[in-house]
Design a protein around this nucleic acid. Structure first.
Length: 561
RNA sequence: GCGCCCGUAGCUCAGCUGGAUAGAGCAUCGGCCUUCUAAGCCGGUGGUCGCAGGUUCGAGUCCUGCCGGGCGCGCCA
């Protein structure tokens, strides 16, 4: 529809250029906007205002000239010039409903496109350290990352979901020490408890499982507890495997699956860390200072140089990160999106600087980052402090248990990534029926219910075929719904391009709202079978789009509620 | 102090690459179930878009400064 209008305008613009009203050496691309007010038609174009200067005549006059030269089209019923020079297009009713048969033809494919042409894209998200259960911040990352992945797939990209699993470094030592302390019967209140030890109750669970000789499976490896509180290496391996298994269970309950779990330790085993250091040194971007090896990240926009090898010979987290991203590049991902919490935003400049210093032909702005702001959790009006060390947090599992997977996913994906999110547990738990996800699911269930009723009445029709004469749809609510349905493909394209999955939730809420209004105002199962069939076709199209949209959010579309 | 993000209705948030009288939900007030699921619908109340300048035919949207909040500024990850 929008394309049609655009083509008409481009034709008129070309005519004006040929006539000399508009300079021929400039290109004019009309922008077609959706109107807010129905009095302004279905679409509006501001090209006359934008091009008035170039034409050297008042906007309204240019608009008139454009309208006179618009080719005729059956899709357009009326064109008006309004305000300072907007060109408003009123589309014909018949053309508005074409989308209904399109949707029913394309079914689950409606809204999908092939813009990505199978290009390999990697989305790295969650990437939590295996030092504790996933908390609500990881949940936000999981909801956003997975939805983004689904959106990219819907745009024709070949998406790899990857989890970077930090199983080397000081945090893991800290974890092992904490578990060992618990295994020895110490508590965080004891004086000999490790200074930065993890204090959560789950540490006790790990210690008990270790002492009991339990076997856990994670990452295709099996680890059995040795029951020896002195064997720190055994404790370390057991604890990591145990917590990884827990995280896997959390993710499974959340409906998120990864294609690749990438172990930081493998970068050391494969020599990739060493190779990276060598390459950086050869390229002349390193120097020794106070016994440490530094990288001149300031040459690539960082505000200070960074240590990559510590005085004690160990590497900072940042070097394996660079090695890891070089590996991503070498695996052929021309587009990589890292979804992380905004508390990691300082790594963006650093990692990109490190990659530039490799002279590996990696583009300057690579990789992309989607950084979500922090999640604040409130309970009884009080902020719940999230701290792994203090042992106080809200886990993803808690949320799923309390408010359900659908609501949790929806809620965590429903806001712009760069605004902070308040997750009010009381609201989500005690007033679940006020959560927008139920409102949308209810619209889907209602349509299914009507279809069941129709079947009971002995009307046999295909559930995905367009039956009935769509020209019998004449109500304003019906045209509004058709227009909303027609916007869906554009939404899928822009949400993926902008990396903003939250638009999907708002779109679906609007669509469901329009449907509920229509449902209450007009019955569908009426005696006039011709009108009934047309309306049922519209119902089917709405149901299909809701189902397609919810699927991209990883939220179920129930047939009854 | 420096860097990134945010500041829109009492609360939680939308507002697409600047566009025509700023939108939802919750809360609140008042209506609608013998009729396809009331987890619903209809209506009312409620906003100097943090403040001040600037750019533009036009600014919630772009630029500058200030105020307020979050995050970061480790030889932690």
């Amino acid at each position: 529809m929008k394309e049609t209008v655009s083509e008409l305008l481009q034709s008129a613009l070309a005519t004006l250029q040929a006539e000399g009203t508009l300079p021929a050496d400039q290109t004019f691309t009309p922008q077609i906007g959706n109107t807010r007010d129905k009095a302004h038609g279905d679409y509006a174009c501001n090209i006359a205002l934008a091009a008035a200067k170039a034409a050297g005549c008042p906007p309204r006059k240019l608009a008139e000239a454009l309208v006179e030269r618009l080719p005729r089209s059956t899709a357009v019923e009326k064109v008006e010039i309004a305000g300072p020079g907007f060109i408003n297009f009123f589309m014909s009713t018949a053309s508005a409903f074409e989308v209904v048969s399109t949707i029913l033809d394309q079914a689950t494919q409606y809204g999908r496109n092939n813009h990505g042409k199978g290009e390999k894209v990697q989305v790295e998200f969650v990437s939590a350290n295996p030092t504790g259960p996933l908390h609500v911040g990881h949940g936000r990352g999981a909801a956003i990352g997975d939805c983004l992945s689904r959106l990219l797939e819907a745009n024709g990209y070949d998406v790899t979901r990857e989890f970077y699993y930090n199983d080397a470094g000081a945090q893991i030592n800290n974890l092992a020490l904490s578990v060992q302390s618990r295994a020895k019967g110490l508590t965080p209140e004891d004086e000999t408890w490790p200074a930065d030890g993890y204090r959560g109750d789950y540490i006790t669970d790990v210690a008990n499982a270790y002492l009991a000789g339990e076997t856990v499976t994670a990452d295709d490896r099996e680890v059995t507890g040795k029951a020896d509180p002195e064997d720190q290496q055994a404790i370390r391996e057991f604890a990591v495997a145990y917590l990884r298994r827990e995280q896997d269970l959390d993710l499974k309950a959340f409906g998120v699956e990864f294609d690749v779990y990438f172990l930081e330790s493998s970068l050391y085993e494969d020599g990739k860390v060493e190779q990276t250091v060598k390459r950086l040194q050869e390229n002349g971007y390193t120097y020794e200072h106070e016994g440490a090896l530094w990288l001149k990240t300031t040459e690539f926009g960082d505000d200070k140089d960074r240590v990559m090898r510590k005085k004690d010979g160990g590497y900072t987290y940042f070097l394996p990160d660079v090695a890891y991203h070089l590996d991503k590049w070498q695996r052929g991902f021309t587009t990589v999106i890292n979804e992380q919490g905004a508390d990691h935003h300082s790594t963006v400049t650093r990692v990109r600087a490190g990659l530039q210093a490799l002279n590996a032909g990696i583009p300057e702005g690579w990789p992309d980052y989607v950084l979500h702001q922090m999640v604040m959790v409130t309970r009884s009006g009080q902020e719940v402090k999230i701290s792994k060390r203090a042992g106080s947090y809200v886990t993803v599992r808690d949320l799923i248990d309390e408010v359900g997977r659908d609501a949790t996913r929806f809620f965590l994906a429903a806001r712009r990534v760069d605004s902070q999110l308040t997750f009010d547990i009381d609201l989500a738990r005690s007033q679940t029926n006020e959560n927008p996800v139920y409102y949308i699911q209810y619209a889907h269930a209602r349509i299914c219910s009507v279809l069941r009723k129709l079947k009971e009445e002995g009307v046999d029709r295909g559930l995905n075929e367009c039956v009935g004469d769509l020209s019998l749809l004449t109500l304003d609510e019906e045209k509004d719904l058709a227009n909303q349905l027609a916007k869906y493909p554009e939404l899928i394209e822009s949400s993926a391009r902008l990396r903003e999955p939250h638009h999907l939730t708002h779109y679906l809420r609007d669509l469901a709202g329009q449907f509920h209004t229509y449902y209450n105002a007009h019955k569908v199962l009426i005696e006039d079978t011709a009108v009934r069939d047309a309306r049922v076709s519209l119902y089917l199209a709405i149901r299909q789009v809701i189902a397609n949209g919810l699927d991209l959010l990883g939220v179920s579309a129930p047939e009854e509620m």
